[in-house]
């Protein structure tokens, strides 16, 4: 099965306001794109559209292949130990235990597996969310601000994980304000439209 992510002239309408329109790009296996732009320009909305969580107001979005989504919210059960909270998602995807363990290792959080999620710091939670994306084995990664809250070491681990993902033919689409050290990437720059632009 071919893997790809394609935006065809997509437009985003939120709360009666046009955030962006005419966004077109296509990502092939191994390619990565960073969505950039000022706050409120619609970066997260663009990613939610790619994940199928929002419908484009116009145009089309075609995602071929499974999706690993990492939004703002952790989606890890706060009362559970981290290992069990990640285990739920692994079971849901039918990922094997070895892949999950390797992903937890790749983000250097294997020592946190017995710790309840509510005790984790922002950065540790972020590492766990990245580990879930790695463990999913999905070819399309959609990461919203993956670098937020991560320390230098974790940023390095994230860059390594993304490099491995791309080397295996994976696609990355990330919204970010900071450089992620990813090597060659495409940039999708969103610019604010005039406030009074109505559809």
């Amino acid at each position: 099965m071919t893997v790809g992510l394609r935006f065809e002239d997509a437009a985003c309408l939120r709360g009666g306001r046009l955030l962006f329109e005419g966004v077109s790009f296509a990502l092939a296996p191994g390619e990565a794109a960073l969505v950039t732009g000022p706050n409120g320009v619609g970066k997260s909305s663009l990613l939610r559209m790619a994940a199928g969580l929002l419908k484009p107001a116009a145009g089309a979005i075609v995602a071929e292949g499974r999706i690993a989504w990492m939004g703002e919210a952790a989606a890890l059960d706060a009362a559970l130990p981290l290992g069990a909270a990640l285990g739920f998602w692994a079971r849901l995807e039918g990922a094997d235990a070895a892949a999950t363990a390797a992903a937890i290792d790749a983000m250097a959080i294997s020592n946190l597996a017995p710790v309840p999620v509510r005790m984790l710091s922002t950065g540790q939670r972020k590492r766990a969310m990245i580990a879930r994306a790695i463990a999913s084995g999905a070819p399309i990664w959609l990461l919203d601000e993956p670098g937020n809250g991560l320390d230098t070491a974790a940023l390095g681990l994230l860059a390594d994980a993304i490099a491995a993902h791309r080397a295996a033919g994976g696609i990355l689409l990330a919204a970010t304000h900071q450089p992620l050290g990813l090597g060659e990437t495409r940039t999708i720059a969103l610019a604010p439209l005039p406030v009074d632009s109505l559809p």
């Binding site: 939610r48 994940a51 199928g52 969580l53 499974r66 999706i67 690993a68 989504w69 919210a73 952790a74």
Partner: peptide, 13 residues
């Protein structure tokens, strides 16, 4: 809905 679990489920199709 708040913790993002529903989004994660929906993103998995």
């Amino acid at each position: 809905a708040e913790s993002g679990v529903l989004d994660q489920l929906a993103a998995r199709g």
